[in-house]
Structure formats: C-alpha cells, structure tokens
Amino acid sequence: MKLEGRYGRNKKTLSDEDQLKLATSCVAIVGCGGLGGYIAEELARIGVGRLVLIDGDRLEVSNLNRQIMATELNIGQWKVEAARDRLHSVNSEVNIEVVRGWFEEDKGPELFQNVDLVCDALDSREARVVLERVCHEMNLPLVFASIAGWFGQIGVSLPGDFSVSRLFGRGEQGVEKAWGNPAFTPAVLASLSVAEAVKLVVGLKPSLRHAWLQVDLLTMEFERFEIL
C-alpha cells in the first residue's frame, strides 16, 4: 500500500525536519493501561520511529471501559502485545519493542537504552518517584501524568528537576481506588502528555516544566500550578 501521504495532515504543525526528528526518535512508555495505551496510539500515529512499551499485566474485562488496546477479543493477552498488534496495523513503519514485565529501578539502564524520552503512564505514585530518579540518572526527560475519576495531573520533569517527587512524594492511597477511571480521563491526559512529548522530541520548549496542569473534567477547569 502506498502511504506517502501518511503525515500530510501533520503539516504545518510539524515541519519535514520535525517529522524526521520524530522518525529517528525512541520513546519509552512505562505502563500500557489507560494512559499508556492512548499515549502509544498517538505517538505511533504521529510518527515516532521506535516505541518501547513496558507493562507486566494482561488485559482483563475491567479494562474495556477505557483502555484503547483492550477489545472483547483480546482479553487475557499481554497488554504490550495487544498494543503492538494494534499499532502495527495503525503504523507499520514504527518499530515496537515490548517488555512483558514491571518497571523496576535496577532495570532502568537496560529498559531505557537508546531511549530519548520517557512517558510515565504508571498507576502507582511510589513507582513514579522511582521512575523520575531513574530518568534523571540517565539524563532523560520525563513526561508524567496521573488520573483518578474526573481528574488528572500532567507535567514535565527534566534532569535536575524534582517535580514528580514533589507532587507524588506524600499522601496515602490515591483517590483512583475509590473513583476509578472512566473512558475520557485517560484519553485527555494522554493527549496532553503526547503534546508535551512531541515538543521535547522536536526541540521545542515544553510548557509544563517546573509546573503541573491540574485537570478537572467535572468543571472543565485546567489550572496551572508552578513547582517552585
């Protein structure tokens, strides 16, 4: 199939040079659930050359309400493999590497070898803090996001920043255990993450460094807070 026009609608949002930067970049997505699935989908569609998908879970029925990689036909499949299958049909030019396992601190150097950027799509606040530490040790930029119910938070942490540990370092169990995650919240927060990720890849300044966006889809308020 001739697909020369694949990225035609990216212009003039993205120049040919930007598109080349995307095609020669590698993004790791840590977690392949609600957030991670949409992040992977959008990064594949926009033309990131290589994606590393990391998740140790298999798809289950309760994922169907929000996880774009979940269908009634693939329940029980590894999430990262379901994602790879779908993304291959979306953009076969993208090289997809799958890791069927959980992110752990000592695996960082191996998981993020040749990676240019990391997207946090984890579901644990403690693991996010560890992920920020690993990214910074490896001099990698991190786009972080989290969701619960109608609400979400998203920001960018560059090496030397401590945005994630400041935001997620305290407080007990996240409120998502009680509020769950409906279909729209991961899609919105994933899209915001991808917008920041694309800026970082093409060399534009991210908008949410030293800050986070507090997203409230119940009141439709997007409020920015500085991390001083």
């Binding site: 991670g36 606040r125 969701i147 619960a148 609400f151 305290r170 169990q173 996240g174």
Partner: peptide, 10 residues
C-alpha cells in the same frame, strides 16, 4: 490555602 488529594492512577 490550596489542598490536593493524591491522584495516582494510570
């Protein structure tokens, strides 16, 4: 005073 609960899901 601004207060935020922990939002940790993914």
């Amino acid at each position: 005073l601004a207060l935020f609960p922990p939002v940790g899901g993914g």
